[in-house]
Protein backbone atom coordinates (compact mmCIF):
# COMPACT_ATOMS: atom_id res chain seq x y z
CA UNK A 1 0.00 0.00 0.00
CA UNK A 2 2.79 2.37 0.97
CA UNK A 3 4.83 1.41 -2.10
CA UNK A 4 1.77 2.12 -4.31
CA UNK A 5 1.45 5.57 -2.77
CA UNK A 6 5.17 6.23 -3.40
CA UNK A 7 4.80 5.16 -7.04
CA UNK A 8 1.89 7.56 -7.44
CA UNK A 9 3.95 10.41 -5.94
CA UNK A 10 6.89 9.62 -8.22
CA UNK A 11 4.61 9.53 -11.25
CA UNK A 12 3.22 12.95 -10.34
CA UNK A 13 6.74 14.32 -10.08
CA UNK A 14 7.68 12.91 -13.44
CA UNK A 15 4.59 14.34 -15.11
CA UNK A 16 5.17 17.69 -13.40
CA UNK A 17 8.81 17.77 -14.51
CA UNK A 18 7.96 16.91 -18.11
CA UNK A 19 5.24 19.56 -18.27
CA UNK A 20 7.52 22.18 -16.75
CA UNK A 21 10.27 21.41 -19.23
CA UNK A 22 7.87 21.52 -22.14
CA UNK A 23 6.43 24.86 -21.05
CA UNK A 24 9.88 26.31 -20.46
CA UNK A 25 11.11 25.22 -23.92
CA UNK A 26 8.09 26.65 -25.72
CA UNK A 27 8.41 29.96 -23.90
CA UNK A 28 12.13 30.34 -24.86
CA UNK A 29 12.98 32.43 -27.94
CA UNK A 30 14.18 30.48 -30.97
CA UNK A 31 17.85 29.60 -30.72
CA UNK A 32 20.27 32.03 -32.42
CA UNK A 33 22.74 30.36 -34.68
CA UNK A 34 26.19 31.72 -34.00
CA UNK A 35 29.23 31.97 -36.24
CA UNK A 36 31.94 29.40 -35.97
CA UNK A 37 35.42 30.48 -34.96
CA UNK A 38 36.81 30.71 -38.48
CA UNK A 39 37.38 34.07 -40.15
CA UNK A 40 35.69 34.84 -43.44
CA UNK A 41 37.24 36.53 -46.45
CA UNK A 42 36.39 37.11 -50.08
CA UNK A 43 36.19 33.64 -51.62
CA UNK A 44 34.97 31.89 -48.44
CA UNK A 45 32.01 29.59 -48.76
CA UNK A 46 29.65 27.75 -46.45
CA UNK A 47 27.03 28.16 -43.73
CA UNK A 48 28.99 30.89 -41.96
CA UNK A 49 28.76 32.99 -45.09
CA UNK A 50 25.02 32.28 -45.25
CA UNK A 51 24.73 33.60 -41.73
CA UNK A 52 26.90 36.61 -42.53
CA UNK A 53 24.79 37.46 -45.56
CA UNK A 54 21.59 36.94 -43.58
CA UNK A 55 22.61 39.24 -40.77
CA UNK A 56 23.89 41.90 -43.17
CA UNK A 57 20.66 41.60 -45.16
CA UNK A 58 18.62 42.09 -41.97
CA UNK A 59 20.54 45.29 -41.31
CA UNK A 60 20.04 46.50 -44.89
CA UNK A 61 23.67 46.28 -45.95
CA UNK A 62 23.46 43.24 -48.20
CA UNK A 63 21.11 43.06 -51.17
CA UNK A 64 22.29 40.00 -53.05
CA UNK A 65 21.31 36.34 -52.91
CA UNK A 66 21.92 34.40 -49.72
CA UNK A 67 24.05 31.86 -51.55
CA UNK A 68 26.77 31.17 -49.00
CA UNK A 69 29.48 32.56 -51.28
CA UNK A 70 31.52 35.53 -50.08
CA UNK A 71 31.58 37.60 -53.26
CA UNK A 72 31.72 41.23 -54.20
CA UNK A 73 28.40 42.31 -52.73
CA UNK A 74 29.14 40.59 -49.45
CA UNK A 75 32.56 42.22 -49.40
CA UNK A 76 31.16 45.69 -49.93
CA UNK A 77 28.40 45.10 -47.38
CA UNK A 78 30.99 44.04 -44.79
CA UNK A 79 33.07 47.13 -45.47
CA UNK A 80 30.08 49.45 -45.05
CA UNK A 81 29.05 47.65 -41.86
CA UNK A 82 32.58 47.89 -40.48
CA UNK A 83 32.74 51.59 -41.24
CA UNK A 84 29.37 52.36 -39.68
CA UNK A 85 30.18 50.38 -36.54
CA UNK A 86 33.60 51.92 -36.00
CA UNK A 87 35.58 48.82 -36.91
CA UNK A 88 38.71 48.71 -39.06
CA UNK A 89 37.46 48.70 -42.67
CA UNK A 90 39.08 45.63 -44.17
CA UNK A 91 36.31 43.67 -45.83
CA UNK A 92 37.50 40.61 -43.90
CA UNK A 93 35.24 39.20 -41.20
CA UNK A 94 37.25 38.61 -38.07
CA UNK A 95 36.05 37.91 -34.52
CA UNK A 96 35.45 41.60 -33.72
CA UNK A 97 33.27 42.03 -36.81
CA UNK A 98 31.34 38.86 -36.04
CA UNK A 99 30.71 39.96 -32.45
CA UNK A 100 29.51 43.37 -33.58
CA UNK A 101 27.28 41.76 -36.17
CA UNK A 102 25.73 39.30 -33.72
CA UNK A 103 25.16 42.08 -31.24
CA UNK A 104 23.50 44.23 -33.90
CA UNK A 105 21.15 41.45 -35.01
CA UNK A 106 19.94 39.71 -31.83
CA UNK A 107 16.66 38.65 -33.45
CA UNK A 108 18.19 37.08 -36.53
CA UNK A 109 17.65 33.39 -37.05
CA UNK A 110 18.59 31.10 -39.86
CA UNK A 111 15.04 30.61 -41.14
CA UNK A 112 14.72 34.29 -41.99
CA UNK A 113 16.95 33.79 -45.00
CA UNK A 114 15.48 30.61 -46.39
CA UNK A 115 14.10 32.48 -49.40
CA UNK A 116 17.30 34.34 -50.09
CA UNK A 117 17.16 37.96 -51.01
CA UNK A 118 17.60 39.61 -54.36
CA UNK A 119 16.77 43.13 -53.45
CA UNK A 120 17.75 45.77 -55.87
CA UNK A 121 20.72 47.99 -55.37
CA UNK A 122 18.34 50.84 -54.71
CA UNK A 123 17.85 49.42 -51.20
CA UNK A 124 21.52 49.85 -50.61
CA UNK A 125 21.54 53.51 -51.44
CA UNK A 126 20.28 54.38 -48.00
CA UNK A 127 23.52 53.15 -46.54
CA UNK A 128 26.05 54.42 -48.99
CA UNK A 129 24.29 57.29 -50.64
CA UNK A 130 24.69 56.01 -54.21
CA UNK A 131 27.12 57.71 -56.53
CA UNK A 132 26.24 61.22 -55.55
CA UNK A 133 26.96 61.00 -51.85
CA UNK A 134 29.81 58.57 -51.31
CA UNK A 135 30.34 57.33 -47.81
CA UNK A 136 33.94 57.62 -46.60
CA UNK A 137 33.83 53.82 -46.29
CA UNK A 138 34.04 53.61 -50.05
CA UNK A 139 37.20 55.60 -50.36
CA UNK A 140 40.14 53.27 -50.05
CA UNK A 141 43.66 54.60 -49.98
CA UNK A 142 46.00 51.85 -51.01
CA UNK A 143 44.87 49.33 -48.44
CA UNK A 144 41.73 47.27 -48.81
CA UNK A 145 40.74 44.44 -51.04
CA UNK A 146 41.48 44.91 -54.71
CA UNK A 147 40.16 42.03 -56.71
CA UNK A 148 41.70 40.95 -59.95
CA UNK A 149 39.83 39.97 -63.05
CA UNK A 150 41.00 37.38 -65.54
CA UNK A 151 38.47 38.58 -68.08
CA UNK A 152 37.53 35.00 -68.90
CA UNK A 153 34.03 33.67 -68.51
CA UNK A 154 33.09 30.30 -67.05
CA UNK A 155 32.29 29.04 -70.54
CA UNK A 156 35.76 30.13 -71.75
CA UNK A 157 37.39 28.15 -68.94
CA UNK A 158 35.18 25.17 -69.64
CA UNK A 159 36.06 25.26 -73.34
CA UNK A 160 39.75 25.43 -72.49
CA UNK A 161 39.38 22.41 -70.21
CA UNK A 162 37.78 20.51 -73.11
CA UNK A 163 40.74 21.38 -75.36
CA UNK A 164 43.27 20.41 -72.69
CA UNK A 165 41.58 17.08 -72.13
CA UNK A 166 41.13 16.42 -75.85
CA UNK A 167 44.71 17.36 -76.73
CA UNK A 168 46.78 16.29 -73.75
CA UNK A 169 45.11 13.74 -71.50
CA UNK A 170 47.76 11.26 -70.49
CA UNK A 171 50.46 13.92 -70.70
CA UNK A 172 52.23 15.07 -67.52
CA UNK A 173 50.36 17.74 -65.61
CA UNK A 174 52.68 20.54 -66.75
CA UNK A 175 52.06 19.36 -70.32
CA UNK A 176 48.34 19.92 -69.79
CA UNK A 177 48.97 23.33 -68.25
CA UNK A 178 51.14 24.09 -71.28
CA UNK A 179 48.23 23.52 -73.70
CA UNK A 180 46.06 25.94 -71.73
CA UNK A 181 48.96 28.40 -71.61
CA UNK A 182 49.32 28.29 -75.41
CA UNK A 183 45.65 29.21 -75.77
CA UNK A 184 46.14 32.14 -73.39
CA UNK A 185 49.32 33.20 -75.19
CA UNK A 186 47.37 33.29 -78.44
CA UNK A 187 44.68 35.38 -76.75
CA UNK A 188 47.28 38.03 -75.94
CA UNK A 189 48.97 37.89 -79.33
CA UNK A 190 47.78 40.27 -82.09
CA UNK A 191 48.16 37.56 -84.71
CA UNK A 192 45.30 35.52 -83.30
CA UNK A 193 41.59 36.08 -82.74
CA UNK A 194 40.50 37.96 -79.66
CA UNK A 195 38.29 35.41 -77.97
CA UNK A 196 38.83 31.90 -76.62
CA UNK A 197 36.10 30.33 -78.80
CA UNK A 198 37.49 31.99 -81.94
CA UNK A 199 40.99 30.70 -81.12
CA UNK A 200 39.80 27.19 -80.35
CA UNK A 201 37.47 26.86 -83.31
CA UNK A 202 39.71 28.52 -85.90
CA UNK A 203 39.70 25.88 -88.63
CA UNK A 204 42.70 23.60 -88.30
CA UNK A 205 43.95 25.21 -85.09
CA UNK A 206 43.49 22.19 -82.82
CA UNK A 207 43.34 18.54 -83.81
CA UNK A 208 40.86 17.73 -81.08
CA UNK A 209 38.34 20.00 -82.80
CA UNK A 210 38.82 18.18 -86.11
CA UNK A 211 38.45 14.69 -84.69
CA UNK A 212 35.69 15.53 -82.22
CA UNK A 213 37.69 14.76 -79.09
CA UNK A 214 36.96 18.27 -77.87
CA UNK A 215 33.52 16.97 -77.00
CA UNK A 216 34.89 14.53 -74.41
CA UNK A 217 34.09 15.47 -70.83
CA UNK A 218 37.22 16.91 -69.18
CA UNK A 219 38.38 15.50 -65.86
CA UNK A 220 39.38 17.38 -62.70
CA UNK A 221 43.03 17.37 -63.70
CA UNK A 222 42.30 19.18 -66.96
CA UNK A 223 40.26 21.79 -65.10
CA UNK A 224 43.05 22.24 -62.56
CA UNK A 225 45.53 22.67 -65.41
CA UNK A 226 43.39 25.46 -66.86
CA UNK A 227 43.11 27.11 -63.45
CA UNK A 228 46.89 27.05 -63.03
CA UNK A 229 47.43 28.50 -66.50
CA UNK A 230 44.94 31.27 -65.81
CA UNK A 231 46.75 31.91 -62.53
CA UNK A 232 49.88 32.64 -64.52
CA UNK A 233 51.74 29.35 -64.87
CA UNK A 234 53.17 29.18 -68.37
CA UNK A 235 55.54 26.21 -68.63
CA UNK A 236 56.01 27.06 -72.33
CA UNK A 237 57.32 30.58 -71.67
CA UNK A 238 55.25 32.25 -74.35
CA UNK A 239 54.83 29.46 -76.93
CA UNK A 240 52.17 30.02 -79.58
CA UNK A 241 52.32 26.61 -81.26
CA UNK A 242 52.98 23.00 -80.39
CA UNK A 243 53.05 19.73 -82.21
CA UNK A 244 53.56 16.07 -81.64
CA UNK A 245 56.74 15.14 -83.56
CA UNK A 246 55.51 11.57 -84.00
CA UNK A 247 52.38 12.72 -85.81
CA UNK A 248 53.39 15.90 -87.65
CA UNK A 249 55.05 16.19 -91.00
CA UNK A 250 54.29 19.89 -91.47
CA UNK A 251 57.62 21.36 -92.58
CA UNK A 252 56.70 24.84 -91.46
CA UNK A 253 55.99 23.61 -87.95
CA UNK A 254 59.29 21.74 -87.76
CA UNK A 255 61.11 24.88 -88.83
CA UNK A 256 59.75 26.95 -85.94
CA UNK A 257 62.24 27.79 -83.18
CA UNK A 258 61.69 25.30 -80.39
CA UNK A 259 61.23 26.62 -76.88
CA UNK A 260 60.94 23.34 -75.04
CA UNK A 261 59.59 19.81 -75.05
CA UNK A 262 57.05 18.69 -72.48
CA UNK A 263 55.82 15.12 -72.68
CA UNK A 264 55.02 14.28 -76.29
CA UNK A 265 54.71 17.88 -77.46
CA UNK A 266 57.29 20.31 -78.78
CA UNK A 267 56.36 23.92 -78.01
CA UNK A 268 57.49 26.59 -80.45
CA UNK A 269 57.57 30.36 -80.78
Amino acid sequence: MRSGFRSLQLGKWIVFTILTCALTMTSLPSQVKAFTARNLIYGSEGYDVNELQGRLHLLGYYWGKNDGIFGWKTYWAVRTFQYNFGLPVTGDVDMATKQALVKATPNWNYHMDSNGGTNTVANQEGTNGGTNGLSPATVVAGDGFSHGSSGLSASDLNLMAHVVYGEARGEPFEGQVAIAAVILNRLHDPKFPKTIPAIVYAPGAFDCVNDGQINLQPNAEARRAVADAVAGWDPTHGALFYFNPAKTSNAWMWARPEIMTIGHHIFTD
Binding site: Y42, G43, D143, F145, S146, G148, S149, A220, A231
Partner: peptide, 20 residues
Protein backbone atom coordinates in the same frame (compact mmCIF):
# COMPACT_ATOMS: atom_id res chain seq x y z
CA UNK B 1 51.51 43.12 -51.54
CA UNK B 2 47.76 43.23 -51.24
CA UNK B 3 45.34 40.34 -51.64
CA UNK B 4 43.58 40.85 -54.94
CA UNK B 5 41.58 37.71 -55.58
CA UNK B 6 40.73 34.49 -53.82
CA UNK B 7 38.88 31.30 -54.60
CA UNK B 8 38.88 27.60 -53.92
CA UNK B 9 37.92 24.42 -55.69
CA UNK B 10 38.78 20.73 -55.45
CA UNK B 11 40.50 21.26 -52.09
CA UNK B 12 42.85 23.90 -53.48
CA UNK B 13 42.82 27.59 -52.60
CA UNK B 14 44.22 30.16 -55.01
CA UNK B 15 45.15 33.66 -53.91
CA UNK B 16 46.33 36.50 -56.13
CA UNK B 17 48.40 39.28 -54.60
CA UNK B 18 49.14 42.54 -56.33
CA UNK B 19 52.39 44.35 -55.57
CA UNK B 20 52.17 47.76 -53.94
Amino acid sequence: VIRADAGNSDGIARFAYQPL
